[in-house]
Design a protein around this nucleic acid. Sequence first.
DNA 1: CCAAAAGTGTTTTAAATACACCCATGC
DNA 2: GCATGGGTGTATTTAAAACACTTTTGG
Lengths: 169, 169
Amino acid sequence: MLEEAARRELLCATGLNDVYLEQLFTFGEPSRDPRSHVVSVSYMALLADPKRIAKPASKYARGEWFEVSALPPLAYDHALMAEYGVKRLKSKLEYSNIAYNLLPEVFTFAQFEGLYELILARPIDRRNFRRRILTMGLLRELPSKLRGAHRPAALYSFNKRSLQIIEML
Amino acid sequence: MLEEAARRELLCATGLNDVYLEQLFTFGEPSRDPRSHVVSVSYMALLADPKRIAKPASKYARGEWFEVSALPPLAYDHALMAEYGVKRLKSKLEYSNIAYNLLPEVFTFAQFEGLYELILARPIDRRNFRRRILTMGLLRELPSKLRGAHRPAALYSFNKRSLQIIEML
DNA sequence: CCAAAAGTGTTTTAAATACACCCATGC
DNA sequence: GCATGGGTGTATTTAAAACACTTTTGG
């Protein structure tokens, strides 16, 4: 199975396990690898915590993190694949709860909003966004609060931590 | 190239040429073909006129038409592929001008609306729909009219006959 | 003049947008 | 008491939805 192969490969290369995985596109230009005709089925993985890739558990990890805005030169057409993934993520953010893969179990609304602003690469009006998301019932507020240097922030969780397709922006 | 292979195969099997083609999904379950492990990259083709598949030009055509609501039993996981294609078309209809592949150069608004109602499988309010589509500038009205048994209908064409992504419904 | 399909406007309702101040805490 | 980030409300604008009659033609 392709997805299982992708998971195996990901585990092997980065030590990552149990991540959201989504097939993106299959590339088959004969010229993409000058040596032989290779067909590649690309997948995108999402995870909330970059530290997971640096854990001691993954002794043989070769993964490294880059900002998508500052990728190093990639082999073959892999930059295309990355671009495709970002595009898919951006659009899926607008009609699903896919963000649950990119946040911890529990988070503040500021984190949630920050994620959207980061990925969509545009500022979002806090009040309007909050109203929309909360009336939509995407999140549930937890009784506890995050205590920190400033006013304590309400904590939230996703109502469902499985992919829900919902028109949301 | 995968898309070229799909076009070749389509031409060979149905005599169809110059159609819109879009990659859908790549299936790789080992069990999908009991004899050997086959990976299939599925594509969807769109064409306006079903008669194109029955033309004399395609002597060796083996294509046959079915309503998606009444497909015969298909080999392997091909029913899944068809379902996937319908899903993709439905959603793309709502945020692009992909419909230009499913209508002749010139058509009436009733045809246009009928296409949407058919694919989305729900009735659409004529007045609201018309207003939205026309103010959106998706179509351009032609000077001539279609004369028939009843009141002549205005004729329209798509402004652009290439895929445009536009939030439209 | 009748049947059939084409065409058109208004009112109501809901959603999106724009926008600025107060609150709670740690230091 | 001040710096910092968290939290909130209203008025305006825009878009969606609901809804039914008139027009034009051929026969």
